[in-house]
Amino acid sequence: MQQFWRFSVSWGVETIPEDLIIKTTARFMTPFIQLFGAYIILHGHITPGGGFPGGALIGASMILLAVVFGLSEGKKRISHDTSIVLESLAVFYIFIGFAGILAGSLFLSNRAAGFSLGNPGSLVSAGMIPALNIIIGLKVASTGKTLFYSLASREVEE
C-alpha cells in the first residue's frame, strides 16, 4: 500500500522507481507494438482492423513509454504541439470525402463513384479507404496519447 502511494505521488513529477526488467522490456517491445499498429492501419481494408484499432495500439505504445520512462521523457519524444498538428490533420478527411463528389456521386461514396472495393491480397486497391484509415489512425493515436498525458500530468492550469 505504501509502495503504491509513493509511486502515485511521485508519478507525474520526476522520480520513478528504477526497474531494469520493465525498462528493458518496454524499450524492446515499443517498436514492435508501433509496427503492429501501422500494419493494422495499412491493411485495414483487406484484413480485420482499421484506423481505430491501429491508432489505439500506437497511442497505447506512447502511453507505455510515458508510464515506464516518465512523462517528461514522453513529452520529449512527442510534444503537445506535434499532437495538435496531428489531430488537425483530420481536416483532410473532409477533403478526401469531396473526391466522391468530384467523381460525380455523393459525399464519401466509394463504389458509386467508380473506385474499386479492394482485392484480397493487394494493398493499394480500395479507392480512398486506405487514406481515410491512415487519417483516422493518426487522429486516434494522438487523441489517446493526449488524453493520458493531460490526465496524468501534475500541471494545474488556472
Binding site: 497505447a60 502511453i63 488524453l147
Partner: peptide
C-alpha cells in the same frame, strides 16, 4: 475479429491506463 482487436487495444490498453491515472490523482 475486428471487434476483438479493438477490445484488446482499447479495453485492455488505453482504458486501464486512464483508470490508473485517475486513481493516482484521487484515492486508491
Amino acid at each position: 475479429p475486428d471487434i476483438a482487436i479493438t477490445e484488446a487495444a482499447v479495453g485492455a490498453g488505453i482504458t486501464s491506463m486512464l483508470f490508473v491515472a485517475a486513481i493516482s490523482r484521487t484515492s486508491r
